[in-house]
Amino acid sequence: MMIEVKINGKPAEVPAGTTILAAARSCGVNIPTLCHHEALEPFGACRLCLVAIDDAGRQSIVAACNYPLEHSGLVVETGTSAVWQARKMSLKLLLARCPGVKVLQDLAREWAVDTKDLLLTEDRGEECILCGRCVRVCREVIGKSAISFAFRGVERRVSAPFDQEPDACLGCTACAFVCPTGAVKVIEQNGRRLIAPWHSNLEQVACKECGRAVAPLKMLAHLRGLAGEENEQAGEGVFCSRCRRLKTAAAVTALPEVKFPGPFMIP
């Protein structure tokens, strides 16, 4: 069922259940986000996507990323002064927690947020804004749930169970890939892959040709499992992407030359 809403004064028609964020983006209205990721369920953690809505006279400020548009007539405003005031406050709170994070600093500059009163906050080197992207990608996409939120209030953090190397972790680094701040650090050395915040420490499979680390054995075994192959062979005959390309190229060059019958003519 299609419904009609108004976004910044312009009418828009979207399927019922579309989030405000998706509806706005579909008609070219940009709403800032940090915790949102196309591949993940909405979470509503960063509060940077706040917008003003008017639902038949009932006004409020809501997170656009997880507000589903269910019926016609809703009026959305994405750039009022109240909206910007709320977003700037959210950003300031994130900055107070993580003063050293570049993506936050850049936004603060772009939005001309007054950060004078944040000068007093001590930079404890915290880079995690608790957006939950890593937790969600591990659960929703990888299906492993190796990490989760732990503790509550000011102590809330993302952690592996018991803050020890998680059995469930494949070392796929999807968590690092989706992290918006760079808080999830991955170190590759001596044939092992370390994911620092979770204490993951995985053996890598070496390329059969050049010996460079390709991927963790556990991850390859998981992928072979998904493909219905035997796990025992997980680490065998694996080439890195460069060597695989070189081999393919060599194989193609070795093919007998094909003779074309002269220049192609258009009759």
Binding site: S145, I147, S148, F151, R152, S159, F162, P166, A168
Partner: peptide, 17 residues
């Protein structure tokens, strides 16, 4: 998943690790 249990066990004050 063990991570769910750890999450709940640290969230609620009525649980001890």
């Amino acid at each position: 998943p063990l991570s769910y249990l750890y999450s709940a066990a640290t969230f609620y004050r009525s649980f001890d690790l």
